[in-house]
Design a protein around this nucleic acid. Structure first.
Lengths: 230, 230
DNA sequence: ACAAAAGTGTTCGATATACACCCATGT
DNA sequence: ACATGGGTGTATATCGAACACTTTTGT
């Protein structure tokens, strides 16, 4: 594989999208990184991303990049911020529109294209990143934590059916803090965003089986909603 | 004045900044609009904006546009969102990074360049806007209202010194709702973000003179701060 | 019977909300 | 003295935070 031609022209900034793809795995919040095969920052890790095609929306560009690297298309995707420091890319002026994506736990993630070296890294243990990608990642983590408290994006990280312990676990991993079990459960249940299924799930080790719940998408009123976790 | 050449090239999106400039005037929240002198959307009103120069940051571009139209440079400026629908500009692919700005009440706003026709419009009475600028404006108003409740950006709309009635008035105008005087005052004062000056101000009509306060910038902890107005 | 995880309520302090009258000044 | 806007406190309801034991299952 050859490096793609760099499309910036004199006088005109180029536009890319970069995507911070989050996923819960092995009790950690992980982010997908690609090891760069070409300079600049050769062999450093970077967020997946690429140039915006002339006839696609920014969101389509982000979804395309996601699909190329993960095979996954049906995800939660949100625009994060646009980074435009003239010196952020040594090749020339590149403005990047950053997105973040959340992948459900039950979605099978395929490897990227043959030659590209992609890996999931725990967000609190990422290696040195190329360009300003550390700044972008930090911003994304901050936004995810914030939204977890005020909205119900958290469910996008879980499978269709999950136990309340799974859910609390997911929140604790992302927020990096312990939550009170009774308060967590009563708040979640009172909010009415969950429906109980008739099934339950035996714990991996042993113990009392837990009821399985499902998220009611219809109840996703973000705006002015009471915080889930104050 | 001639229309500027349109710099989009084949295969490359062009990048602009658009700025939603807010100001309180005549008991209304107003936004600065420019009447377009050339097609497309000739004679429609639009947000001030323009192409990003190759060596300036996005924020610098937004400040430059602001200064060109208002003569004002020292303002609160925040990135809003990036709009990139391929069909948002009929001339070609233009991605715009939208910003919003807040101008203090004591800043004198100069007219824009000779030929450009600029006017302040109350946000609830704006005319038909060019491109997708109505969407951008609505988004900006929503963000401003939101931030007013959670942070102290509200002070950026007021002069250096102001009375508590002025402040409450500003909040009521932006939020478009009445607030309780006693609750407003105790919350603001308890939060410690104001310092009392030794001076007071006679009301324009008559009545008891009001104490003048000043905003303590140092107390601007936005993150995880308690909401000013829940 | 015991280990392991699920499930369940109450108390207490803090905060939000609703609400009405006196004060200082100018005319 | 009166009109005008400035300034003040309390009672009630609601919400968040802290906290420990019983239940159900598998081995």
């Amino acid at each position: 594989m050859e490096p793609k031609p760099f499309p910036a022209r004199a006088g005109q900034p180029a536009v890319t999208v970069d995507v911070v793809i989050f996923r819960l795995h092995e009790d950690a919040l992980k982010v997908l990184l690609i090891q760069r095969a070409f300079p600049p920052h050769k062999s450093k890790w970077a967020l997946p991303g690429g140039f915006v095609n002339i006839s696609e929306t920014l969101e389509e560009a982000a979804l395309r990049e996601m699909e190329e690297e993960t095979g996954v298309r049906d995800v939660y995707l949100e625009q994060l911020y646009t980074f435009g420091d003239p010196k952020r890319d040594p090749r020339g002026r590149v403005i990047t529109v950053a997105y973040f994506a959340l992948i459900s736990k039950d979605v099978k993630v395929q490897a990227g294209e043959e030659a590209t070296h992609t890996e999931w890294h725990a967000v609190n243990k990422v290696p040195d990143l190329a360009f300003d990608h550390e700044k972008i990642l930090k911003y994304a983590v901050q936004r995810l934590r914030y939204k977890l408290e005020y909205s119900s994006v958290g469910f996008e990280l879980l499978p269709d059916e999950f136990t309340l312990s799974d859910l609390q676990n997911a929140y604790e991993i992302v927020l990096a803090e312990k939550l009170d079990k009774r308060n967590f459960r009563s708040r979640i249940l009172e909010s009415g965003i969950l429906v109980e299924t008739s099934r339950s799930q035996s714990a991996p080790g042993q113990g009392r089986p837990a009821k399985l719940y499902r998220y009611r998408k219809s109840a996703a009123k973000e705006t002015k909603a009471r915080r889930l976790f104050p």
